[in-house]
Design a protein around this nucleic acid. Structure first.
Lengths: 182, 182
DNA sequence: CCCGAATGAGACGTAGATGTCTCATTCGGG
DNA sequence: CCCGAATGAGACATCTACGTCTCATTCGGG
Protein backbone atom coordinates (compact mmCIF):
# COMPACT_ATOMS: atom_id res chain seq x y z
CA UNK A 1 0.00 0.00 0.00
CA UNK A 2 2.59 2.46 1.14
CA UNK A 3 3.89 4.64 -1.65
CA UNK A 4 7.47 4.09 -2.73
CA UNK A 5 8.92 7.55 -2.30
CA UNK A 6 11.89 6.95 -4.56
CA UNK A 7 9.66 5.55 -7.26
CA UNK A 8 7.60 8.72 -7.20
CA UNK A 9 10.74 10.80 -7.46
CA UNK A 10 12.00 8.72 -10.35
CA UNK A 11 8.76 9.15 -12.28
CA UNK A 12 8.70 12.85 -11.45
CA UNK A 13 12.21 13.25 -12.78
CA UNK A 14 11.29 11.42 -15.97
CA UNK A 15 8.31 13.66 -16.57
CA UNK A 16 9.99 16.92 -15.59
CA UNK A 17 12.91 16.13 -17.88
CA UNK A 18 10.47 16.16 -20.76
CA UNK A 19 8.22 18.93 -19.47
CA UNK A 20 9.69 21.28 -16.90
CA UNK A 21 6.37 23.07 -16.36
CA UNK A 22 4.37 19.95 -15.55
CA UNK A 23 1.72 20.55 -12.87
CA UNK A 24 1.54 18.67 -9.60
CA UNK A 25 -1.48 16.84 -10.98
CA UNK A 26 0.44 15.65 -14.02
CA UNK A 27 3.33 14.55 -11.83
CA UNK A 28 0.96 12.63 -9.56
CA UNK A 29 -0.65 10.85 -12.49
CA UNK A 30 2.75 10.07 -13.99
CA UNK A 31 3.72 8.45 -10.70
CA UNK A 32 0.45 6.55 -10.61
CA UNK A 33 -0.82 8.17 -7.42
CA UNK A 34 -3.42 10.80 -6.62
CA UNK A 35 -2.63 14.47 -6.16
CA UNK A 36 -3.67 14.23 -2.50
CA UNK A 37 -1.17 11.47 -1.82
CA UNK A 38 1.55 13.40 -3.61
CA UNK A 39 0.88 16.32 -1.28
CA UNK A 40 1.00 13.99 1.70
CA UNK A 41 4.55 13.05 0.81
CA UNK A 42 5.86 16.38 -0.46
CA UNK A 43 4.67 19.58 1.14
CA UNK A 44 4.68 21.40 -2.19
CA UNK A 45 6.35 21.78 -5.50
CA UNK A 46 9.44 23.34 -3.97
CA UNK A 47 9.79 20.43 -1.58
CA UNK A 48 9.44 18.00 -4.47
CA UNK A 49 12.13 19.68 -6.53
CA UNK A 50 14.35 19.87 -3.48
CA UNK A 51 13.83 16.16 -2.91
CA UNK A 52 14.78 15.56 -6.54
CA UNK A 53 17.92 17.55 -5.97
CA UNK A 54 18.72 15.48 -2.90
CA UNK A 55 18.11 12.26 -4.80
CA UNK A 56 20.39 13.45 -7.58
CA UNK A 57 23.08 14.30 -5.07
CA UNK A 58 22.76 10.89 -3.42
CA UNK A 59 22.87 9.01 -6.72
CA UNK A 60 25.75 11.01 -8.17
CA UNK A 61 27.64 10.69 -4.90
CA UNK A 62 27.08 6.95 -5.04
CA UNK A 63 28.35 6.90 -8.63
CA UNK A 64 31.48 8.76 -7.55
CA UNK A 65 32.04 6.26 -4.74
CA UNK A 66 31.50 3.25 -6.97
CA UNK A 67 33.80 4.62 -9.65
CA UNK A 68 36.65 4.96 -7.13
CA UNK A 69 37.80 8.12 -8.86
CA UNK A 70 40.90 8.40 -6.70
CA UNK A 71 42.29 5.10 -7.92
CA UNK A 72 44.15 4.03 -11.03
CA UNK A 73 44.50 5.78 -14.35
CA UNK A 74 42.53 9.02 -14.46
CA UNK A 75 41.08 8.29 -17.90
CA UNK A 76 39.86 4.89 -16.73
CA UNK A 77 38.40 6.54 -13.67
CA UNK A 78 36.44 8.92 -15.91
CA UNK A 79 35.21 5.95 -17.91
CA UNK A 80 34.06 4.22 -14.74
CA UNK A 81 32.38 7.39 -13.55
CA UNK A 82 30.43 7.80 -16.77
CA UNK A 83 29.37 4.16 -16.63
CA UNK A 84 28.26 4.48 -13.00
CA UNK A 85 26.32 7.62 -13.89
CA UNK A 86 24.12 5.63 -16.25
CA UNK A 87 21.20 4.90 -13.90
CA UNK A 88 20.99 8.53 -12.79
CA UNK A 89 21.55 10.06 -16.22
CA UNK A 90 17.98 11.28 -16.72
CA UNK A 91 17.83 12.82 -13.28
CA UNK A 92 21.19 14.53 -13.72
CA UNK A 93 20.16 15.85 -17.12
CA UNK A 94 17.07 17.37 -15.55
CA UNK A 95 18.98 18.95 -12.68
CA UNK A 96 21.65 20.25 -15.03
CA UNK A 97 19.02 22.22 -16.93
CA UNK A 98 17.08 23.16 -13.81
CA UNK A 99 18.40 26.66 -13.39
CA UNK A 100 15.79 27.49 -10.77
CA UNK A 101 17.96 25.75 -8.21
CA UNK A 102 20.60 28.37 -8.73
CA UNK A 103 18.27 31.10 -7.57
CA UNK A 104 18.27 30.01 -3.96
CA UNK A 105 22.01 29.42 -4.07
CA UNK A 106 23.66 26.21 -5.14
CA UNK A 107 23.30 23.37 -2.69
CA UNK A 108 26.36 22.74 -0.55
CA UNK A 109 26.20 19.05 -1.39
CA UNK A 110 26.65 19.82 -5.06
CA UNK A 111 29.77 21.81 -4.37
CA UNK A 112 31.35 18.80 -2.70
CA UNK A 113 30.53 16.48 -5.60
CA UNK A 114 31.62 19.13 -8.07
CA UNK A 115 34.94 19.38 -6.28
CA UNK A 116 35.44 15.63 -6.55
CA UNK A 117 34.91 15.70 -10.32
CA UNK A 118 37.24 18.65 -10.71
CA UNK A 119 39.80 16.91 -8.51
CA UNK A 120 39.72 13.94 -10.85
CA UNK A 121 40.58 16.13 -13.82
CA UNK A 122 43.27 17.93 -11.82
CA UNK A 123 44.82 14.57 -10.92
CA UNK A 124 44.72 13.54 -14.57
CA UNK A 125 46.52 16.70 -15.55
CA UNK A 126 49.17 16.27 -12.87
CA UNK A 127 49.77 12.68 -13.92
CA UNK A 128 50.15 13.76 -17.54
CA UNK A 129 47.04 11.95 -18.69
CA UNK A 130 44.98 15.05 -19.54
CA UNK A 131 46.04 18.05 -21.54
CA UNK A 132 46.84 21.21 -19.64
CA UNK A 133 45.34 23.80 -21.97
CA UNK A 134 41.75 22.95 -20.95
CA UNK A 135 40.95 24.11 -17.44
CA UNK A 136 39.64 21.55 -14.94
CA UNK A 137 36.60 23.77 -14.43
CA UNK A 138 35.78 23.55 -18.13
CA UNK A 139 36.37 19.81 -18.25
CA UNK A 140 33.99 19.45 -15.33
CA UNK A 141 31.34 21.54 -17.00
CA UNK A 142 31.83 19.67 -20.26
CA UNK A 143 31.44 16.40 -18.37
CA UNK A 144 28.02 17.45 -17.15
CA UNK A 145 27.05 18.74 -20.57
CA UNK A 146 28.02 15.56 -22.35
CA UNK A 147 26.34 13.33 -19.78
CA UNK A 148 23.21 15.42 -20.27
CA UNK A 149 23.50 15.29 -24.04
CA UNK A 150 23.95 11.54 -23.83
CA UNK A 151 20.83 11.09 -21.74
CA UNK A 152 18.93 13.40 -24.07
CA UNK A 153 20.15 11.63 -27.20
CA UNK A 154 19.09 8.26 -25.78
CA UNK A 155 15.65 9.61 -24.85
CA UNK A 156 15.24 10.95 -28.36
CA UNK A 157 16.37 7.68 -29.85
CA UNK A 158 19.34 9.23 -31.62
CA UNK A 159 21.75 7.02 -29.71
CA UNK A 160 21.22 3.45 -28.56
CA UNK A 161 21.19 3.08 -24.80
CA UNK A 162 23.99 0.52 -24.92
CA UNK A 163 26.24 2.97 -26.78
CA UNK A 164 25.66 5.88 -24.43
CA UNK A 165 28.59 5.31 -22.07
CA UNK A 166 31.06 4.65 -24.86
CA UNK A 167 29.94 7.66 -26.92
CA UNK A 168 30.19 10.04 -23.98
CA UNK A 169 33.48 8.62 -22.73
CA UNK A 170 35.16 8.50 -26.13
CA UNK A 171 34.25 12.07 -26.98
CA UNK A 172 35.14 13.51 -23.59
CA UNK A 173 38.37 11.58 -23.19
CA UNK A 174 39.34 12.05 -26.82
CA UNK A 175 39.14 15.77 -26.23
CA UNK A 176 40.71 15.70 -22.79
CA UNK A 177 43.55 13.22 -23.15
CA UNK A 178 47.02 14.33 -24.06
CA UNK A 179 48.17 13.22 -27.45
CA UNK A 180 51.43 11.33 -27.41
CA UNK A 181 51.81 12.12 -31.09
CA UNK A 182 49.76 14.54 -33.17
CA UNK B 1 9.86 55.29 -29.29
CA UNK B 2 9.13 52.13 -31.15
CA UNK B 3 10.21 49.03 -29.27
CA UNK B 4 13.10 47.06 -30.71
CA UNK B 5 11.53 43.65 -31.06
CA UNK B 6 14.83 41.80 -31.28
CA UNK B 7 16.12 43.61 -28.21
CA UNK B 8 13.12 42.43 -26.25
CA UNK B 9 13.71 38.89 -27.43
CA UNK B 10 17.36 39.07 -26.48
CA UNK B 11 16.56 40.24 -22.96
CA UNK B 12 13.82 37.63 -22.66
CA UNK B 13 16.26 34.91 -23.66
CA UNK B 14 18.79 36.16 -21.13
CA UNK B 15 16.24 36.09 -18.33
CA UNK B 16 14.61 32.81 -19.31
CA UNK B 17 18.01 31.15 -19.51
CA UNK B 18 18.47 31.92 -15.84
CA UNK B 19 14.84 31.44 -14.78
CA UNK B 20 12.65 29.35 -17.03
CA UNK B 21 9.52 30.09 -15.00
CA UNK B 22 9.81 33.88 -15.17
CA UNK B 23 6.44 35.61 -15.47
CA UNK B 24 5.46 37.89 -18.33
CA UNK B 25 5.80 40.81 -15.92
CA UNK B 26 9.38 39.86 -15.07
CA UNK B 27 10.21 39.46 -18.73
CA UNK B 28 8.74 42.87 -19.52
CA UNK B 29 10.72 44.56 -16.76
CA UNK B 30 13.89 42.75 -17.85
CA UNK B 31 13.37 44.15 -21.35
CA UNK B 32 12.71 47.61 -19.91
CA UNK B 33 9.14 47.87 -21.19
CA UNK B 34 5.71 47.59 -19.61
CA UNK B 35 3.69 44.43 -19.51
CA UNK B 36 1.06 46.04 -21.73
CA UNK B 37 3.59 46.79 -24.44
CA UNK B 38 4.97 43.29 -24.22
CA UNK B 39 1.47 41.97 -24.86
CA UNK B 40 1.10 44.34 -27.79
CA UNK B 41 4.08 42.73 -29.47
CA UNK B 42 3.56 39.12 -28.45
CA UNK B 43 0.07 37.72 -28.14
CA UNK B 44 1.04 35.57 -25.16
CA UNK B 45 3.71 33.53 -23.56
CA UNK B 46 3.48 30.84 -26.21
CA UNK B 47 3.92 33.40 -28.95
CA UNK B 48 6.94 34.84 -27.17
CA UNK B 49 8.63 31.47 -26.81
CA UNK B 50 7.82 30.71 -30.43
CA UNK B 51 9.39 34.00 -31.43
CA UNK B 52 12.47 33.08 -29.42
CA UNK B 53 12.60 29.83 -31.29
CA UNK B 54 12.38 31.66 -34.60
CA UNK B 55 15.11 34.07 -33.56
CA UNK B 56 17.33 31.17 -32.56
CA UNK B 57 16.71 29.51 -35.90
CA UNK B 58 17.55 32.71 -37.77
CA UNK B 59 20.72 33.34 -35.78
CA UNK B 60 21.94 29.77 -35.96
CA UNK B 61 21.15 29.65 -39.66
CA UNK B 62 23.14 32.83 -40.11
CA UNK B 63 26.03 31.28 -38.17
CA UNK B 64 25.93 28.25 -40.45
CA UNK B 65 26.00 30.52 -43.51
CA UNK B 66 28.85 32.63 -42.20
CA UNK B 67 30.88 29.58 -41.25
CA UNK B 68 30.66 28.21 -44.82
CA UNK B 69 30.43 24.69 -43.46
CA UNK B 70 30.60 23.14 -46.90
CA UNK B 71 34.02 24.58 -47.62
CA UNK B 72 37.54 23.56 -46.66
CA UNK B 73 38.71 21.22 -43.96
CA UNK B 74 35.82 19.87 -41.91
CA UNK B 75 37.57 20.49 -38.59
CA UNK B 76 38.24 24.10 -39.53
CA UNK B 77 34.61 24.42 -40.57
CA UNK B 78 33.54 23.21 -37.12
CA UNK B 79 35.87 25.78 -35.54
CA UNK B 80 34.35 28.54 -37.67
CA UNK B 81 30.86 27.37 -36.79
CA UNK B 82 31.56 27.43 -33.07
CA UNK B 83 33.07 30.91 -33.40
CA UNK B 84 30.08 32.18 -35.38
CA UNK B 85 27.75 30.69 -32.79
CA UNK B 86 29.20 32.97 -30.13
CA UNK B 87 26.64 35.82 -30.30
CA UNK B 88 23.71 33.40 -30.15
CA UNK B 89 25.20 31.09 -27.54
CA UNK B 90 22.89 32.14 -24.70
CA UNK B 91 19.81 31.85 -26.84
CA UNK B 92 20.84 28.44 -28.14
CA UNK B 93 21.60 27.23 -24.63
CA UNK B 94 18.10 28.26 -23.58
CA UNK B 95 16.43 26.58 -26.54
CA UNK B 96 18.51 23.44 -26.06
CA UNK B 97 17.13 23.05 -22.54
CA UNK B 98 13.63 24.21 -23.49
CA UNK B 99 12.01 20.83 -23.81
CA UNK B 100 8.55 22.31 -24.01
CA UNK B 101 9.17 23.00 -27.69
CA UNK B 102 9.34 19.28 -28.29
CA UNK B 103 5.79 18.79 -27.10
CA UNK B 104 4.25 20.50 -30.09
CA UNK B 105 6.66 18.72 -32.40
CA UNK B 106 10.05 19.98 -33.38
CA UNK B 107 10.03 22.95 -35.69
CA UNK B 108 10.70 22.15 -39.33
CA UNK B 109 13.31 24.90 -39.45
CA UNK B 110 15.33 23.15 -36.77
CA UNK B 111 15.37 19.94 -38.74
CA UNK B 112 16.97 21.71 -41.67
CA UNK B 113 19.67 23.31 -39.53
CA UNK B 114 20.17 20.06 -37.69
CA UNK B 115 20.69 18.30 -41.01
CA UNK B 116 23.35 20.84 -42.00
CA UNK B 117 25.31 20.22 -38.81
CA UNK B 118 25.04 16.48 -39.23
CA UNK B 119 26.07 16.80 -42.86
CA UNK B 120 29.22 18.59 -41.76
CA UNK B 121 30.18 15.69 -39.52
CA UNK B 122 29.32 13.19 -42.24
CA UNK B 123 31.59 15.06 -44.64
CA UNK B 124 34.36 15.07 -42.08
CA UNK B 125 34.02 11.32 -41.67
CA UNK B 126 34.05 10.71 -45.42
CA UNK B 127 37.13 12.87 -45.83
CA UNK B 128 38.92 10.98 -43.08
CA UNK B 129 39.02 13.93 -40.71
CA UNK B 130 36.63 12.57 -38.10
CA UNK B 131 36.61 9.15 -36.52
CA UNK B 132 34.03 6.69 -37.70
CA UNK B 133 33.11 5.05 -34.39
CA UNK B 134 31.11 8.06 -33.21
CA UNK B 135 27.87 8.49 -35.10
CA UNK B 136 27.14 11.82 -36.81
CA UNK B 137 23.93 12.04 -34.82
CA UNK B 138 25.86 11.81 -31.57
CA UNK B 139 28.47 14.32 -32.72
CA UNK B 140 25.64 16.70 -33.58
CA UNK B 141 24.02 16.26 -30.20
CA UNK B 142 27.38 16.64 -28.46
CA UNK B 143 27.97 19.84 -30.43
CA UNK B 144 24.79 21.35 -29.02
CA UNK B 145 25.60 20.13 -25.54
CA UNK B 146 29.08 21.58 -25.53
CA UNK B 147 27.96 24.90 -26.98
CA UNK B 148 25.36 25.02 -24.22
CA UNK B 149 27.89 24.07 -21.57
CA UNK B 150 30.22 26.75 -22.88
CA UNK B 151 27.58 29.44 -22.67
CA UNK B 152 26.61 28.21 -19.21
CA UNK B 153 30.22 28.13 -18.00
CA UNK B 154 30.79 31.68 -19.22
CA UNK B 155 27.61 32.90 -17.50
CA UNK B 156 28.75 31.28 -14.26
CA UNK B 157 32.19 32.78 -14.60
CA UNK B 158 33.90 29.40 -14.70
CA UNK B 159 35.32 30.12 -18.15
CA UNK B 160 36.48 33.45 -19.55
CA UNK B 161 34.38 34.65 -22.48
CA UNK B 162 37.45 34.94 -24.68
CA UNK B 163 38.31 31.27 -24.07
CA UNK B 164 34.85 29.94 -24.83
CA UNK B 165 35.29 29.20 -28.52
CA UNK B 166 38.68 27.58 -28.05
CA UNK B 167 37.55 25.45 -25.11
CA UNK B 168 34.48 24.15 -26.92
CA UNK B 169 36.30 23.58 -30.20
CA UNK B 170 39.33 21.88 -28.68
CA UNK B 171 37.27 19.46 -26.64
CA UNK B 172 34.81 18.62 -29.41
CA UNK B 173 37.41 18.28 -32.14
CA UNK B 174 39.86 16.50 -29.85
CA UNK B 175 37.20 13.88 -29.31
CA UNK B 176 35.96 13.81 -32.88
CA UNK B 177 39.15 13.95 -34.93
CA UNK B 178 40.88 10.85 -36.10
CA UNK B 179 44.21 10.21 -34.50
CA UNK B 180 47.03 9.76 -36.96
CA UNK B 181 49.04 8.05 -34.25
CA UNK B 182 47.87 6.95 -30.82
C1' DC C 1 -12.34 -11.67 10.30
C1' DC C 2 -11.81 -6.96 11.81
C1' DC C 3 -9.66 -2.67 12.54
C1' DG C 4 -6.64 0.97 11.42
C1' DA C 5 -3.78 3.21 8.36
C1' DA C 6 -3.08 4.75 3.80
C1' DT C 7 -4.97 6.04 -0.43
C1' DG C 8 -8.28 7.98 -4.07
C1' DA C 9 -11.70 11.14 -5.48
C1' DG C 10 -13.22 15.44 -5.30
C1' DA C 11 -14.81 19.95 -3.24
C1' DC C 12 -13.25 24.41 -1.79
C1' DG C 13 -10.91 28.86 -1.12
C1' DT C 14 -6.70 31.27 -2.40
C1' DA C 15 -2.87 33.17 -4.86
C1' DG C 16 -0.59 34.34 -8.84
C1' DA C 17 -0.42 34.84 -13.77
C1' DT C 18 -2.70 35.98 -17.73
C1' DG C 19 -5.11 38.63 -21.25
C1' DT C 20 -7.88 42.73 -22.14
C1' DC C 21 -9.22 47.14 -21.37
C1' DT C 22 -8.97 52.31 -20.44
C1' DC C 23 -6.71 56.61 -19.97
C1' DA C 24 -2.90 59.72 -19.40
C1' DT C 25 1.66 60.69 -21.13
C1' DT C 26 5.40 61.00 -24.22
C1' DC C 27 7.84 60.91 -28.35
C1' DG C 28 8.53 62.00 -33.23
C1' DG C 29 7.27 63.50 -37.69
C1' DG C 30 5.05 66.94 -40.50
C1' DC D 1 3.89 73.91 -33.02
C1' DC D 2 0.47 70.28 -33.32
C1' DC D 3 -1.29 65.80 -34.10
C1' DG D 4 -1.10 60.93 -34.08
C1' DA D 5 0.97 56.83 -32.83
C1' DA D 6 3.17 54.27 -29.34
C1' DT D 7 3.97 53.56 -24.67
C1' DG D 8 3.27 53.28 -19.41
C1' DA D 9 0.44 52.63 -15.53
C1' DG D 10 -3.00 50.36 -13.67
C1' DA D 11 -7.77 48.38 -13.18
C1' DC D 12 -10.41 44.30 -14.13
C1' DA D 13 -12.24 39.62 -14.88
C1' DT D 14 -10.67 35.03 -15.74
C1' DC D 15 -8.21 30.99 -15.32
C1' DT D 16 -5.12 27.74 -13.74
C1' DA D 17 -2.52 25.59 -10.24
C1' DC D 18 -1.93 25.23 -5.56
C1' DG D 19 -2.75 23.70 -0.82
C1' DT D 20 -6.12 21.99 2.44
C1' DC D 21 -9.92 19.61 3.68
C1' DT D 22 -13.48 15.76 3.97
C1' DC D 23 -15.23 11.28 3.17
C1' DA D 24 -15.49 6.78 1.12
C1' DT D 25 -12.66 2.92 -0.15
C1' DT D 26 -9.05 -0.32 -0.01
C1' DC D 27 -5.30 -2.75 1.59
C1' DG D 28 -2.64 -5.27 5.04
C1' DG D 29 -1.53 -6.83 9.60
C1' DG D 30 -3.09 -8.85 13.83
Amino acid sequence: MSVDRDHVLKEAAGLLTRKATASMDEIARAAGISRATLHRHFAGRDALVRALEDLGIRQFGHALDQARTEEGDAADAVRRLIAETEPAADLLAFLFCENQLYEAGVNEGWNRLDARVTALFVRGQEEGTFRLDLSPAWLTEAFYGLVGSGAWAVQEGRVAAKDRTRMVAELLLGGAERRTKP
